[in-house]
Design a binder for these strands. Structure first.
Lengths: 157, 157
DNA sequence: ATCCTTGCAAAGCATTTGCAGTCAC
DNA sequence: GTGACTGCAAATGCTTTGCAAGGAT
């Protein structure tokens, strides 16, 4: 185990509070705008991990003249403020996840759909794989700070 | 545990043999060409996980007039033949990995570099996380067939 | 008042496609 | 000989950028 990962595991909050948005943007030296708030609110409200296009389509209901470029910039601002994460896959557009605590994903190989797993993040999982792993990597000059686990499969027909 | 993953775990060969290329392409209904062989040979020879551009640059030393489009098509043929895997990340181009057995990766957050982990693939790891996980997902209509684990961190300065 | 952000259009990068000529089987 | 593959150039999809007008502090 190691401190960075323990800190990740101890975070209790998943989706950030609304007031959190202002604080987080501030901390990153960014301004709170109507567009960013709308993008954040939408991302916070959905279970799925939408693409920029999907966010654009949804946010347009509130701000009809918002541009796709602004949505991209807003998503980037959220990532920079550590309120969201960008998930990339081999095919199709990137997807955005606004849960900022450590957690796992399942991904459907047929549809590309990504969902969160309710399973609690296990900071000891790498030790269960091999108790000497983290130390031996450190000795080889690689400092492990985090890990990602993703389950692949498909939804039943 | 489940059959698909057990099969993955039992595969002993990592990097495929040269003769393997013909068989694998054949099985996928694809032809063996000089271009595909060169791409495969290069991918097999390197520890890193190169992008299509990098493969192109390298293979051009053997086949100076090969086109980038052909490299993309060759890489796709290898993926289709299960001789390589395509790895995508939030930034930059996709990377290709020709180890076809299940294994783990480490990724440097500073440089984007990706390497294989020597640690053996553990088909029971998900059970160690939560013994009821795979069953409970199945009951919810999601069939797990595989998982990906990636260690994040950075190389010491 | 200052500097950041928006929205538009244009550019950029990674990747794919259409097609005529060539090669593998 | 037949159908698949190559190489070229053009197209596509996703994302970023430049810039003038508008908005946040």
């Amino acid at each position: 185990m190691f401190d960075g990962m323990r800190r990740l595991a101890e975070k209790t909050e998943g989706v950030a509070e609304p007031g959190e948005l202002r604080r987080a943007l501030d901390e990153a030296g960014l301004r709170l705008t109507r567009q960013r708030a709308a993008v954040f609110d939408y991302l916070r409200s959905v279970e799925s991990h939408p693409s920029a296009e999907e966010v654009y389509a949804a946010v347009r209901r509130d701000i009809p003249h918002i541009s796709l470029a602004t949505v991209y910039k807003a998503l980037e601002a959220l990532v920079e403020s550590h309120l969201a994460a960008k998930l990339a896959y081999a095919d199709g557009p990137a997807r955005y996840d606004c849960r900022c605590d450590a957690h796992y994903h399942i991904r459907c190989l047929k549809t590309g759909q990504v969902r969160d797993l309710p399973t609690a993040f296990d900071a000891e999982l790498l030790d269960k794989l091999d108790p000497t792993l983290i130390d031996s990597l450190r000795q080889q000059g690689f400092q492990v700070t985090d890990y990602r686990l993703e389950l692949l499969g498909h939804f039943a027909d």
